[in-house]
Design a protein around this nucleic acid. Structure first.
Length: 189
DNA sequence: GCCACGATAGTG
DNA sequence: ACTATCGTGGCG
């Protein structure tokens, strides 16, 4: 299965976010880990007050202003990692936060837990840390792919944990597969 | 330099 | 509802 091409990411962030649902996250290794994306959030760039890009291309956020198809990983609350894919053409900030995925292969069928629900657990499951920040998603070490499953039914809601962002907090920039148990936290339906 | 504050998740 | 835990960025 081959990686989605750069052109997939070089589009409006909202389109990339919506189209990422149903795609496969693949990390070749021993074992190769595969999971299907079921929850994402769009972060629209400098004007988006909930985005790390809101303060311009600071050292942390600069990657969001760069070329599309690269991984942006950061640490939240001093203990969890979050993974994003960079969108939009080079010079324009944008990213999609991947928040939940359904295990397909390579994960322990660990009791009744949902090991890939929520951005922190998703990164833990794929062993993604800041060491993977800036990784090229079109190069094969870690990538997204289309297995022809098609886009699932999609619902939208406000994003999680961005209440501070004023009017931007209310915008429905979270996309998820309703009813899927690997969707994190609240509005799961 | 220094400090307030998170794009969270597990426990009570 | 509480809190662990630390990098980022704002400010001086």
């Amino acid at each position: 299965m081959s990686a989605l091409p750069r052109g997939f990411y070089e589009r409006p962030t909202m389109d990339v976010a919506r189209d990422l649902l149903g795609k496969l996250l693949i990390r070749p290794g021993s074992p190769t880990r595969v999971a299907r994306v079921v929850e994402v959030e769009a972060y629209l760039g400098e004007r988006d007050l909930a985005s790390h890009a809101r303060r311009g291309p600071t050292p942390r956020a600069a990657i969001m202003f760069g070329p599309p198809g690269f991984l942006y990983v950061y640490l939240v609350y001093g203990m969890h990692h979050c993974m994003n894919v960079v969108t939009e053409q080079d010079g324009v900030a944008g990213a999609v936060l991947i928040r939940g995925a359904e295990p397909v292969a390579g994960f322990e069928s660990d009791e009744s837990r949902h090991p890939l629900a929520g951005p922190g657990r998703l990164c833990a499951g794929f062993q993604i840390t800041r060491g993977e920040n800036g990784l090229d998603l079109c190069a094969g070490e870690f990538f997204l792919a289309d297995d022809g499953a098609g886009r699932p039914r999609v619902k939208r809601s406000a994003r999680v944990g961005v209440a501070y962002a004023g009017a931007w907090a209310a915008r429905k920039l979270r996309f998820y597969v309703p009813g899927n148990p690997h969707v994190s936290g609240r509005p799961r339906r």
